[in-house]
Design a binder for these strands. Structure first.
Lengths: 330, 330
DNA sequence: ACGTCAAATAACAACGTTGTTAATAATAAT
DNA sequence: ATTATTATTAACAACGTTGTTATTTGACGT
């Protein structure tokens, strides 16, 4: 089946080492012979065997990305951006939607040069099976991690949102998000809210100051917002904990015929491009997705081509972005 | 760096061929030696080199899935199901979100044993660069394809939906979906609607019998449904062309305070599990996702392990499924 | 025309596995 | 005790590349 370098060596009457060099456009081989080789290669339908190349070069020119929760859309824009950046570096990205552990094993099998991981709350486990042999960078929450982690300053993000509302004169501010004790990232956001409110000496309504969505899906946000609306304890400013939740909240507000920002000023989370597609333009806070993608890719690349060491924790600072005013054409 | 089979051969005083056999649990090696090898392997932290193994075995035990449109959620449930089925076969799945052509090239590099592709409308291109060396199965619309295609009988699906409504006594039936001329799949659905209506001698309202969403996103469905509602040409039965569109339509109907199925009976498309998560349970029509996943995986597996030939086109028949009545607990 | 030096190509050893064949140790049969 | 037979292990070629070293070829100066 497979046409190898030796076949084209036979055809051209050259040694297979020169054929190899010719195919790699080495300066050590004369132009006419290069052309002869190339022509013959095309004629025979030669396809390089990358297992062989990987074996000798100890490189696959690919990065693996472990993303177990594919069905939650929030990260897909980030993944797309990461993919783009990796390609720009001359590498390729492969994705696994398996649980992190088996994804990493798969990547090892595929001989990737580096691994990116989206961690959620299984921190404990990860540490035990990360392969020393392959560079790994995680988008997660710092712990006693031995591998580099890219973190977002979630507390500060919420802080920015609260202060923004405060300066606009809002006194009744609520937070809507997942308050469960499992996901560290969500905990930081909640904590950030509490601290910011205290600092500004604002009161957190005991019942509806912090609304628990009990989940991160669109629908969770919807249901929680609905409860809030029915309670008649509506704040004037509302901060939502994630992109998906914002969507649900928006919907609930719309159904209740509440106007944004007149009746209630909603601040979304996660600065991803899709934000612009939302029906109602939203003020939002978070780390711009391309900044995040850039950090992750350059970090793992630095490890792969060990140009320099990568800090154990990199905290990225969030920004506030004002709503984009939609033009008539949409 | 890399601990190899030879290192553990040295350690145990055995030849590296017996070490290899021991690690693969061959019956040709005595139990005590096996144990010795295993212990030493663990002690040294041995990690097999799969490039070497792939090279000699000409197999990677992995299937590549090309899915360029990751940001559209509709297929994610199918992808998850396919991943599960592939794992059950003892293989692994890697995913690429690159354009199909470069995804395929990547998969070749990674030495996958087989490739699955989600085609949209770039049929023309694909044919030219499919590698003869790797089995490839596509979820697409049949053309002059030389590779196996899994197709869904979209026309029949719409037919079933129309007939279902007709038998319930509906006369005013509309279709809402993407009517663009580019996507073959969408064209089939539209055609199916026209034919079914004609067959039943039902009139298609010239303005609002077929509503063009001009896109496949959630929001496209929303906007189109909104136009429909404002037109006051509301049908009693409405068939939507995709999962995402159904979501948008649902939302628009809800905002207009229209009840399902009392005011209007909406039939969704794509029988995917998430359907159950929709706020409003929906009658829906389409091919159950696990059936589709099964067809794709078994097809590519048959090629990979060439057990048997795979038909050039496999048309899967859709089914109607009635709304799941939600229990109080949700 | 002959030796010198550079350019071009050939030869060959790796890379880390697996599968096949050869060699040895242990056991059974006479 | 000696050979035939089998269980174990060792040796070695192969997989398809790349990089290093050796060899050949050709051009040049004298």
């Amino acid at each position: 089946m497979g046409v190898t370098i030796k076949d084209i060596a036979k055809e051209t009457g050259l040694s297979y080492s020169t054929v190899s060099k010719a195919l790699n456009n080495s300066p050590l081989v004369k132009k006419p012979t290069k052309e002869k080789v190339l022509k013959s290669a095309k004629a025979l339908g030669y396809q390089p065997n990358f297992a062989a190349r990987n074996l000798v070069k100890k490189k696959s020119q690919a990065i693996g990305l472990a993303w177990p929760t594919i069905e939650r859309i929030a990260l897909s824009a980030l993944v797309t951006e990461i993919n783009k950046k990796i390609e720009e570096q001359g590498y390729s990205m492969i994705l696994s939607i398996n649980p992190i552990k088996s994804a990493i094993e798969l990547f090892k099998r595929m001989q990737v040069d580096g691994i990116l991981v989206f961690e959620e709350s299984e921190k404990d486990l990860i540490e035990s099976f990360i392969p020393e042999s392959i560079p790994l960078v995680s988008y997660g929450v710092p712990n006693q991690n031995s591998y580099p982690i890219i973190d977002v300053n979630h507390k500060k993000a919420i802080f920015i949102a609260v202060h923004y509302l405060f300066e606009l004169g809002h006194k009744h501010i609520s937070y809507i998000g997942d308050l469960s004790q499992i996901d560290l990232r969500q905990q930081k956001k909640a904590l950030g809210f509490r601290e910011s409110m205290n600092q500004l000496q604002l009161n957190i309504d005991p019942n509806f100051g912090m609304i628990d969505t009990r989940g991160l899906d669109w629908f969770d946000g919807y249901k929680a917002a609905k409860r809030l609306i029915e309670s008649n304890s509506l704040p004037t400013g509302l901060i939502s904990g994630s992109y998906d939740i914002s969507q649900g909240v928006l919907r609930a507000l719309k159904e209740a015929q509440l106007k944004i920002p007149e009746d209630i000023l909603l601040i979304g989370y996660d600065n991803i491009p899709q934000m612009k597609l939302l029906e109602t333009p939203l003020t939002s806070v978070g780390v711009p997705i391309d900044k995040l993608a850039d950090k992750m890719v350059t970090s793992v690349m630095n490890l792969v081509e060990n140009k320099q060491t990568v800090p154990r924790v990199q905290l990225i600072q969030p920004e506030l972005s004002l709503p984009v005013v939609q033009s008539g054409k949409g």
